[in-house]
Simulated assay, not measured.
Amino acid sequence: MKKIFSTLALSAIAVTAVSCSDDDKPAPTEQKQLLGKWNYIEELALDVNGNMVSTDSGENGVCPLDIYDFLSNGSLQHTDYDYSTNSNACSNQILSGTWSINANTFTLKNEFTGEEGEAFEIKKLNNDSFEIQQTLSREDAGNYELNVVSLKYIFKKVK
């Protein structure tokens, strides 16, 4: 399940680089709040009424939590740690992509999402917490049980 999220989230977080306008307007508050490193905490599978029907923790055993580093130029570096119960076996891979925010839509583009990327609805974004939600296609929903129609991803700011 963690790899499904990594694929979806990374693909959704990596959309078009943020560009500066000719008049160098400051970045919207939402973009400024997202800058920095965030830990992936969990994925919530939701039914049509928004009720949580299952959850998948971002827990990696004794290895660090996955880190998403949102940079001011619209690029993303994702450190994806493997799960292990042996601290000597903790390994990771660095994935990259691009991200953007437009109103309450967060878009991610990377090697998994392709040229168009994936869009998520921003449910919460403040200095400590970032939550995005994505409605599943009928095909993707078939990979889940219990009438799951959307996934919510929860991140916490790295202190």
Rank of each mutant, 00 (worst) to 15 (best):
M1C: 13
K2R: 10
T7V: 10
T7R: 08
T7I: 14
A9I: 15
A9R: 04
L10K: 00
I13T: 09
A14G: 14
V15F: 08
V15I: 10
A17F: 07
C20W: 05
S21R: 04
D22I: 08
D23S: 09
D24H: 13
D24Y: 10
K25G: 02
P26M: 00
P26T: 02
P26H: 03
Q31N: 14
K32Y: 01
K32P: 12
Q33A: 08
L35C: 06
Y40E: 07
I41W: 06
I41A: 06
E42Y: 01
A45I: 03
L46T: 01
D47S: 05
M52T: 15
D56S: 15
G58N: 07
G58C: 07
N60D: 04
C63S: 09
P64T: 01
I67A: 07
F70K: 05
L71Y: 00
N73M: 09
S75D: 10
Q77R: 05
H78P: 03
D80W: 11
D80Y: 03
Y81E: 02
Y81I: 00
S84R: 06
T85G: 08
N86K: 12
I94A: 11
I94C: 04
L95M: 03
S96V: 13
G97A: 06
N102A: 06
T105Q: 10
F112S: 09
F112Q: 07
T113C: 10
E116Y: 15
E116W: 10
K123M: 12
K123Y: 02
K124F: 02
K124E: 13
K124G: 00
N127C: 03
D128S: 14
F130H: 02
F130L: 13
F130S: 03
I132Q: 00
I132S: 00
T135H: 12
T135I: 12
L136C: 02
S137W: 01
R138I: 09
D140M: 06
D140E: 14
D140T: 14
A141W: 01
G142P: 02
Y144V: 01
E145V: 08
V149Q: 05
S150M: 05
S150G: 03
L151Q: 00
K152I: 07
Y153Q: 04
I154R: 07
F155E: 00
K156W: 09
K156C: 04
K157H: 09
K159V: 06
